[in-house]
Design a protein around this nucleic acid. Structure first.
Lengths: 143, 143
DNA sequence: GTGATTGCAAATCTTTTGCACTAAA
DNA sequence: TTTAGTGCAAAAGATTTGCAATCAC
């Protein structure tokens, strides 16, 4: 079930993105979108695909993730230097980021209000506003 | 001049961070803190040091930057997958990030207000709230 | 068929690490 | 001295790329 997207199935979804519905892309789309909102790394998704008996190369996973981002099916979240997360939630929202576990948690867009958003510099337009609330275990010296 | 920090010179600054004031650390501290707020990558800073006739290895630049972050003299800003920025502004503030040029611009902390900050999950505490306003040139298809 | 897509391996890029050498206290 | 810090080169990790083989249309 591709809940929040206006397509009945993965084939349509991928066609709408102007991509050929190949075996690999279909399988990845199902892994990503058939189970609610997810935050995955390329490597996680690759592992899942292999486990699910879908032979895909890591390179193709990267390509596909970026194509999906380009098509607006996914959003890339940058919170960690040296590792990208891909978020299947494309609604307006923000994140808790647990600095020790690396876990991302959604915060619905309407639960945070950024007041007095400053005007962007002349000639530029706002693409997106990311609010990241960095959290850590309470009794922990980690920094 | 190390304006926003309560130390008259680089030696004191580094001593206060419980680090030995070596030639390399002193030179890097001066490059970082003697000219207002800056956002630098490790490689940029390394280039500057070499240009300024201060022989330092890139490895030492990385080590030093992380030590300075640990000591609270610098802040690491994560906006780009696969590259870290280090920010000499350690006051409460946020950023514009120009997605095409990679340029970071400070936004004073009091110019943005995050309302209704959601409570962090049980057992965790908020370390920091990052607001990143991603911008791009207006007439540009870049995504 | 033909043009897009895949997979592999190699390449790239940033960052980290091991360890002998050097310098600060 | 003693211990921290440095530099190099090698390693590590994530991501990208080149290109021949393969697949969708």
């Amino acid at each position: 079930m591709i809940a929040s997207r206006p397509y009945a199935n993965a084939v349509e979804l991928i066609r709408a993105a102007h991509l050929r519905p190949t075996r690999q892309r279909l399988a990845l789309a199902r892994l990503l979108f058939d189970s609610g909102d997810r935050h995955v790394t390329a490597e996680q998704l690759h592992n899942e695909a292999v486990t699910a008996q879908v032979p895909v190369s890591l390179a193709t996973v990267y390509n596909t993730l970026h194509q999906f981002v380009g098509a607006g099916l996914l959003r890339e979240v940058v919170v960690n230097p040296g590792r990208s997360y891909f978020d299947t939630n494309i609604r307006d929202h923000h994140h808790f980021f647990h600095e020790e576990s690396g876990q991302l948690t959604d915060i619905a867009g309407d639960r945070i209000e950024v007041k007095e958003l400053p005007k962007p510099p002349p000639g530029t337009a706002v693409r997106r506003v990311d609010v990241i609330i960095r959290i850590a275990e309470k009794n922990n010296d980690y920094k």
